[in-house]
């Protein structure tokens, strides 16, 4: 009988933990803000103030718009460079699924892509990038 009485309490506990779990999940996705910026602006912000730019963009999912500087397939990676400022560009390490589209990219082609900003060396480093809304005019 005592055990039977415990069941509603257990149910309440279960529901509460489910709510907490779901709440923490939604909070997590909120921390990754969707930011939109041009490749030139992104490079400019890192060149002028790396510390400030890092606090805004580092480890964030960003949507970038820019023109293709070059594409290469070194070391088994798919890398797209977007024109930035002077010698600095945006280095986009693409996911494997992007091989076909990346091969079709041409110099100076306008593209939009999404990826995780990792910071700045000589270029802004972006990982896990995928192209979005791509119109390849052939």
């Amino acid at each position: 009988m005592k055990n039977y009485l415990k069941i509603p309490y257990l149910l309440v506990l279960l529901v509460l933990s489910l709510v907490v779990f779901l709440f923490s999940r939604t909070n997590q996705t909120n921390t990754i803000e969707n930011q939109r910026i041009s490749a030139q602006q992104l490079v400019h912000s890192f060149v002028t103030n790396e510390v400030e730019a890092s606090t805004i963009y580092k480890n964030k999912l960003i949507e970038i718009e820019g023109s293709v500087k070059n594409v290469n397939f070194l070391n088994g990676r798919i890398t797209v460079f977007l024109n930035g400022e002077s010698t600095s560009s945006v280095l986009c390490d693409m996911t494997k699924s992007q091989l076909k589209v990346a091969k079709k990219l041409k110099e100076d082609q306008k593209v939009k892509l999404k990826g995780l900003c990792k910071g700045f060396l000589n270029d802004v480093i972006m990982l896990n990038c995928t192209l979005i809304n791509l119109n390849i005019n052939e």
């Binding site: 480890n59 990676r77 060396l121």
Partner: peptide, 22 residues
């Protein structure tokens, strides 16, 4: 896969920089 490096062949110097979160 995104490590930056410069070598100066006239002075035999090398510099390497990498992002740890990459």
């Amino acid at each position: 896969n995104q490590v930056l490096s410069v070598i100066d062949l006239s002075k035999n110097k090398i510099a390497i920089s990498m992002l740890m979160n990459a």
